[in-house]
Each structure stands twice: as C-alpha cells, then as structure tokens.
Design a protein around this nucleic acid. Structure first.
Lengths: 219, 219
DNA sequence: CGGATTCCATACACTTGTGTACTGAGTTGC
DNA sequence: GCAACTCAGTACACAAGTGTATGGAATCCG
C-alpha cells in the first residue's frame, strides 16, 4: 500500500506498452477514484471494472493492484469519498448561508446542489442509490447522507412548520420530490423546466402554511 | 422459434443432468420472463444472465436458446411485457373506479399500485428505470408508462387545478414525490410510515387548492 | 553513487458468461 | 406406426474480467 505522495496526479498519454516515461507523474489513488466515478456515472457500479479504468488511465492493472488491494477496496473507498464530499458540501452551505437567497429557494439548491447542473454527479448519485439496494455498506453510506440532508432541510423549515415533527415531514416531502424529480427527469429530458415548476408548487405550498408569518420566504 | 404452447408452464425439479422427464411440462417463454424478473429484482438488468436463469429453472441453456434468439431478445421481450402490464393495470383502474375511495386517495393507489405492497415489483420498477438511463429502448418504454400514468393522474386532478396546465404540473408533483418516495425509502426501510405522512401532506395541499383560492398565489 | 523504494508492465491461472452446432429423447399428427 | 416437430442436454470456441507472481525502470535518500 502506498504511504506518501509527492506530485499531483497527471493523466498520462496512452503509450501502447511503453514503460513509464520519466516525465509522467505517478498515478494517485484519487486519479483511480475519479476514473471510477466516470465508469459509475456511465453504467453504474456493475460497470466498475479495473480493466476499463486502467485503459482509461493509460496504464495496466499492475498499477491498480499496487494502489488498491482489490476491486472491493476500490468500491469502499469510492463510497467513503463520495459520502465525505456530500457531507462537506452540506457543512459548507450551513456555514455560509447566502443572504440574497430566500430560505425556501435555498432548500432546493441544498438538497442536490451541484447535481442539478452537473449531469455526471447526478448520475453518480443515482448509481450509488441503486447500488445501495443490494449492498449493505452502500446502504449505510446513503443513509448517512440522506439523514444529514433531511436534517438540514428540516432545520430550515422550522419557521414554516407547526412543530418539529411536521418540519421533518415537510423536509422529507421536499427531499423525496427532489430525488424523484431526478429519477423521472431522466425519462423526460425534454421538459427540463418541469422540475422548476414543481419547485414553484412546493414553494407555494410551504408559503401557504406559513401564512401567518410575514414571509421573507419567497424571492 | 416456438409457435404454439399446449400446457401450462411448470417448475421442474432440478435433476442434475437428467433428460427431460416425461411428466415435466415444457417451459414457456413466460416462465423464462418470470425468472428474468426475479433476477432483475435482485440485481438489476446487469444481473440478467442466461446461465443463472437456467439454473433457477432447473434446465440448461439449451432450452433458452430455443425460446429466445439471444440475450438481447430476452431483454426486449421482458421490457415489452412489463410495459403492457403497467398499461393494462392503468386501464383497469380507469375502467373500474372505486366509489368508496376519495379522488385524491385513489391517485396514490394508482400511480404505483401493487408495488406498494409487492416489494419485488417495486424493485423491478426501479431497475427498469435505472436501465433506461443507459438503454435507449428501455427509455422509450419507461417514457410510455410515465406518460400514461401522469396523464391519468392529471385527469383525476382536473377538479382541483385551475387549468389544464396546472393539473399537469400537480400530477407531475404527485408522481415525482411517489417515485422519489420509493427510491428514498429503500434507504430508510425503518420508517415505512413516512410515505403515508407524505401522502397526507400532499392531500392536504391539494385540498387547500380546491377549497378556495383566497390564500396566497406566491410569486 | 548505490541500495532501497516506488510504481507499473508482463505473463499466467482461473472463473464466469455468451453463442453455436450437434445430439437425442418425447410428443404429435397423419 | 412412423415421420416430423418440440424441446432440452452436451460440448466446443470464444471473450472478458479478476487476482497473483515476478521483473524492471525511475526515483529517492543517505
């Protein structure tokens, strides 16, 4: 197992069977994980093949089995990195609230933030979820992320809801609708605007609940 | 290719290498498709292997390649049967409305009817959706079913909505929340009741719209 | 400079899966 | 009865993928 890393990872040009060229920096584990993300985005975790990653990186599997013990470890490390990044982006949003954005609008941007624009990240998200249906460890990872996200949405919805329990229900509704939108929209790529209208409807719904409050809620 | 079938399909006892026993009825294509459904429910379309189906049915692959030309045909026939059944159950619900059920309640039972109780069918549904993200034909199949379902929900929501366009938006919201609930709940099997509360919230929302339009139409 | 270390290439053994050609037992129809 | 058809078993060729053992070039470090 590698212990230290000295240079930044670099994509190497795919020399057919050339020995490591001196100017090429060595591959980092993160480079393998990035390539894994590409394969997963394309075809899910069943498409995660060491052979394909090596070809994509322009090396042979000999490199892989130096950085990783086996295929299973690749899966585990990918899942953990994915979880850590999702949790980190949540923490960032919690620490840096955008004052120019309404509370409700912010919620949607939060739930699946980048994925809305980053198609690859969205596909990875769905692939992880799909994998979690048959892998116990992935299920735990997804549960952690889901719990954190819903918790965060619920915190933002405390003003809107009557009590804490209702805030959690509302948060779950928002989360579920967002996830569902991602899933269904893959079948309906033609009306990309539908998700916008749905967001609008939910905002309207939430706004009607906080009718008593002077809502600075809607932007 | 087979042309006619005389007897009902029967599960045969898994004799190790036994020739076809006379009392065993021949396998129908539907038997293979049912077995395929099991494999898909367990591990998605990537888990659809002829070898495994044959073992499950207690025969060898020789039988499969008589009923089907190849693996691809199995996939196509499975998808088409799946679509036909979904459309048929929709048509049945449209033709036989339950007068004891409220319009709104009926909607949820309609969208993903059996899957709510039939775990296997729900997993197949999600697997088909996942496969549709990388297979063009499956995407078409899913789009057909989605369109029919949303259309149906929208028809039931015409009283509630202001105009036809809004009925479609509301229907999409309901559909998306339901699908999303199925996806997220696989990660949260512990609170099965959450989907119930979400349904309740949406019903409340829809009810508030039909009650009167005094409340806020938020921009 | 010269070993030790890092990183990757190569070759081999093994497994699992597809598709095809051929065979052959049962059944049906005439 | 007997040929023809139905259906499944068997064997072979082929492909793709994993893991391991080993060698070897670069590089680092003292």
């Amino acid at each position: 197992m590698p212990k230290t890393r000295r240079k930044a990872p670099t994509r190497r040009k795919a020399g057919p069977a050339a020995r490591r060229a001196p100017e090429q920096a060595p591959l980092s584990p993160d480079a393998w994980l990035d390539a894994a993300g590409g394969a997963i985005a394309e075809g899910g975790f069943d498409n995660l093949r060491v052979l394909a990653l090596a070809k994509r990186l322009g090396v042979t599997r000999g490199s892989f089995y130096w950085h990783f013990s086996d295929h299973a470890e690749l899966v585990v490390r990918f899942l953990e990195r994915w979880r850590d990044r999702r949790l980190a982006e949540l923490a960032y949003l919690a620490a840096n609230p955008d004052p120019n954005e309404s509370e409700l609008r912010k919620i949607f941007r939060l739930v699946l933030r980048e994925p809305a624009r980053n198609a690859r990240q969205m596909r990875v998200e769905l692939a992880v979820r799909e994998f979690a249906r048959r892998d116990a460890y992935a299920a735990r990872i997804v549960a952690e992320v889901d719990r954190a996200r819903i918790e965060h949405v619920a915190r933002l919805l405390r003003h809107v809801a009557a009590d804490e329990a209702q805030a959690r229900d509302l948060a779950l509704l928002v989360y579920v609708a967002t996830i569902g939108g991602r899933v269904v929209l893959t079948a309906f790529p033609e009306d990309e605007s539908a998700i916008e209208r749905i967001e609008q409807l939910i905002i309207e719904f939430l706004g009607s609940r906080s009718a008593g409050r002077a809502d600075s809620a809607v932007a």
